[in-house]
Design a binder for these strands. Structure first.
Lengths: 239, 239
DNA sequence: ACCTGAACACCGTTCAAGT
DNA sequence: ACCTGAACACCGTTCAAGT
């Protein structure tokens, strides 16, 4: 599916392409998805744009500038996708769950970007409004503003930390991932029940959870939110 | 502190150095610490060993093989450092806290390795015994084996996810880190109190927590363990 | 048996040359 | 004004040559 001249049928010779920030960002986003090959390099970006790889430097100072612009796009995409309409403001738990799941899903749709973006900070206005909203939900649930801000921070860091870890594994080459599978099989495959009675009893569940980052994240999120629920109960009875 | 010929005082010319797996792993560990420069490349490894960079290939099949061997070392180091002597078996919370803190600290002492190791699996016997022990502590606290195994998995994934995120930021170049600081200042520096009343009220706390990954991790760990505590209570009253 | 060093395909980035 | 392409300093890795 390479670019072709529709009149001659021959591949078009590369000639001064017109680029823009938007076109570059769009092409970069495509490259970062699993279908796009999942690697972001200037070489691949140039090929995707039909331009010389170094042409990108006329629009972004360096790769990190490009990454930060892509990070901002990702955050705004996540903001736009959180389904607030279905939620009333007293459903603090559902609200936080929806936010965490959406942020995670949007990042994991582009693992090659997520691994570069998940621990960066950008000054996105859309995000600021979302933060106020989440803190508002926690405040109305009973937490004082400072504690609500703490819980917001914990939730977002928890989510992005798991994103980074999962994304970093996803971009490893298949043969490397296979080595981890093999190591796991050795580790939990033949546990002598006498020596490791409890581990042996739980090993079926551990095997289920292995390489099942979605389910582990859901479990952690629920357990964490149980802890937040305790904070809220304490704040309500204390105040 | 470069190698010198003690009789002539001149730098020794590079001549067939004798290498071993142990010497290579030791040198690699040094490179991965912040003092060691914090980057693991064959070039730097060769320089550290006083040998040609490609000599390492006579002892490890490729870089990933080296990384996995280093990962196993890291896990065993963490195992050895967890202070079990001070803990009785009924202190499930202290036990889990000590494990999480130690695993995190050992990894963050080598950020350049942690970023490669935190989401990998190795078949280390020492770790298997530690897993049995932690599951045992949770079981004695009241959880059935399967739920205990789940909690172990959540704790270790939570810890390593935060490790990966923090380590990935630590190995960024200082100028890049500075960009994040600047973005944060823009984001939370001048929040109009009318528009963002709750965020404004909590912004001092958020600023305290910014780039303070140690404290955020402690807060998340406590909240998560509160959630585990609820599971234990439920299991006790239910059974 | 195992270390050396040239070589290769890839990175990000710079800069003079083109249009 | 902005795209091209040679060039550079780095990556990991292979392989023939040395000892």
């Amino acid at each position: 599916m390479t670019a072709q001249d529709s009149t001659t049928g021959r591949p078009t010779a590369r000639r001064r392409v017109v680029l823009s920030r938007e076109a570059i960002l769009e092409a970069a986003m495509r490259l970062c998805s699993p279908e796009g090959g999942g690697v972001l390099t200037f070489s691949r970006l140039g090929k995707e744009l039909g331009a010389d790889p170094t042409a990108v430097y006329r629009h972004f100072r360096d790769k990190d500038d490009l990454v930060l612009a892509l990070t901002a796009m990702l955050i705004e995409e996540a903001e736009a996708q959180v389904d607030r309409a279905a939620l009333s403001h007293d459903q603090w738990r559902e609200w936080l769950t929806a936010t965490a799941r959406t942020v995670r899903a949007v990042h994991l749709a582009r693992p090659a970007l997520a691994v570069l973006a998940a621990n960066r900070t950008t000054a996105s206005p859309a995000e600021t409004e979302s933060v106020e909203e989440i803190i508002g939900v926690l405040h109305r649930a009973g937490l004082p503003p400072v504690e609500a801000a703490e819980c917001y921070r914990m939730l977002i860091d928890l989510t992005l930390a798991f994103v980074q870890s999962t994304a970093a594994f996803l971009i490893l080459e298949p043969e490397v991932q296979a080595k981890d599978d093999a190591a796991w099989a050795v580790k939990y495959g033949l546990l002598p029940a006498e020596q490791f009675p409890l581990l042996h009893a739980g090993s079926a569940r551990l095997t289920e959870l292995f390489r099942n980052d979605d389910e582990v994240f859901e479990l952690v999120l629920e357990t964490f939110l149980d802890g937040v629920g305790l904070k809220i109960e304490r704040a309500r009875s204390g105040g």
